[in-house]
């Protein structure tokens, strides 16, 4: 897709990530209801397992992309002044990247010893 495909690309991305977010949330909810971890050690072990860690990372990435498209849409709709829009977009991008890196750090910590 070309550089100008930002409309279609964003739209598809938002829908695709929504499907994954929905499915993973459902799975996670069932996991917590049917086999809730008894203590902190079990909770950490849950996220230390590779499939869960990868699924969680993909989930976080999906959330970040989904949120980015959504917030960008809101800012395009309502915030007209160029510098204000640019500042807000930058701020939100930084917050989202920080959230992603934080998740990565937590997952790495869960796997250490």
């Amino acid at each position: 897709m070309s550089r100008t495909a930002s409309g279609l690309k964003a739209w598809v991305l938002q829908r695709a990530t929504a499907v994954y977010i929905g499915l993973f949330s459902l799975y996670f909810l069932l996991q917590m209801l049917l086999a809730p971890p008894d203590d902190w050690v079990q909770w950490r072990a849950l996220f230390a397992a590779t499939p869960m860690a990868v699924a969680m990372l993909v989930f976080m990435l999906a959330i970040l992309l989904h949120a980015w498209v959504g917030v960008r849409d809101v800012l395009i709709d309502y915030v007209k002044p160029f510098w204000l829009r640019l500042s807000l977009l930058t701020l939100i991008a930084l917050i989202l990247v920080a959230c992603g890196l934080w998740t990565l750090q937590l997952l790495i910590l869960a796997r250490l010893n």
Binding site: T4, S6, G7, D77
Partner: peptide, 12 residues
């Protein structure tokens, strides 16, 4: 002609 974030994709 409908590409880009505005012309078509402002529809929510």
């Amino acid at each position: 002609a409908l590409e880009g974030p505005y012309r078509l994709f402002r529809c929510h």
